[in-house]
Design a protein around this nucleic acid. Structure first.
Lengths: 187, 187
DNA sequence: TATTGCCTACCATTAAGTAGGTAGATCTTT
DNA sequence: AAAGATCTACCTACTTAATGGTAGGCAATA
């Protein structure tokens, strides 16, 4: 079984992260995968189905990475730094965040996808909040601010840095922002 | 007399900030303004012309606000806080940053627009760098980090917060992130 | 035999953009 | 000031290409 479905998901992700959800078509995807346009509908009946599958796969990959970081890295700032490294790959490849690309379309986005990306961000927020709370408890993260508030601040900084530094094709600048962020969180 | 053109720019800005550049059409804009689709071409021959005019008008409005902040607010952190307030309006209205909406489309975006939005961000970066450098000189902003690096960090945090908090329709959360950002910059 | 995966050939709709025209304002020339 | 010419802002009525999606067929597989 040569996995066309997986190839479709992979290429579609690249397209959405590179040009936005409204900015790519089934024709583009068909050409990228080397299949006919109508055949995509066999795997993903509608574009919304494809979008939802894309977000699910993306979220799963992140979830796995997040779990690994929690095991491999012991301290709060180190975990945030490792989390930030996940975004760096996007800058290097010239690809934005999938969920940011979808979020930008706001009201034009199908309701179902809006819920999916909200859940994506909420998952990250919950993970960051737990990491920051643990960091404050073990003294590695500076105290005095609500972990929930800090979590939003962290994800905002990284999403924004990815958005801007992709435009400037500057992984170095992204790393600079990540360093400022992590240093500021140190106790 | 120039009323229609201004109305077109205003409505088009709302559409782009609400649904992205690829996510709105001349038909949408025509309906919003109450004019025929073909008449838009009289004012803006192509969609790229409209996009460029949009960015120019948006940048001009920001430039005026930036100049005012420099006059009205004396200290570094206060100026950054006032700068952040400019973004808050977008969260409250459910509108993202125009240039973020364009930046997301990346490679699919007409070359000309890409240059325009890069210039937009570079202008903000230069203003922030000058503000932060002056703040470090007068002791209101914490020293030890390059103003240019801090400037990128500031704009990333605010762009990211606008992106995410618009999705959650949470001006309060945006303000929380802004507060963390500004406190971290204090000397 | 039934299902899977892909195909060709279509469909209705919408996209940006064009052609050409009209009513009214404004400028130019006498 | 009158007459004509030109310009502005909009219109209806297209074109061409692309959009997401459908119908039905066919060969390989389970």
């Amino acid at each position: 079984m040569r996995d066309t479905r997986a190839e479709l998901l992979s290429q579609a992700e690249t397209l959405v992260r590179g040009r936005g959800y409204a900015g790519f078509s089934y024709a583009d995807l068909a050409e990228a995968v080397g299949i006919r346009k109508a055949s995509i509908h066999h795997h993903f009946p509608t574009k919304v189905d494809l979008g939802a599958a894309l977000v699910a796969a993306y979220a799963d990959r992140y979830d796995a990475a997040l779990a690994t970081i929690r095991i491999d890295v012991p301290d709060g700032p180190g975990r945030i730094a490792a989390y930030g490294q996940l975004y760096l790959g996007g800058v290097e490849q010239g690809l934005g965040c999938l969920c940011a690309a979808l979020a930008i379309e706001g009201e034009a986005l199908p309701e179902r996808l809006r819920g999916d990306i909200a859940a994506f961000f909420e998952g990250h927020l919950a993970w960051l909040e737990a990491v920051l709370r643990a960091g404050q408890a073990d003294g590695s993260v500076r105290a005095g601010q609500e972990p929930a508030v800090l979590a939003r601040y962290v994800i905002a900084t990284l999403e924004g840095a990815l958005l801007m530094e992709r435009l400037f094709a500057s992984p170095a600048a992204f790393s600079g922002t990540l360093a400022v962020l992590v240093e500021g969180l140190r106790a």
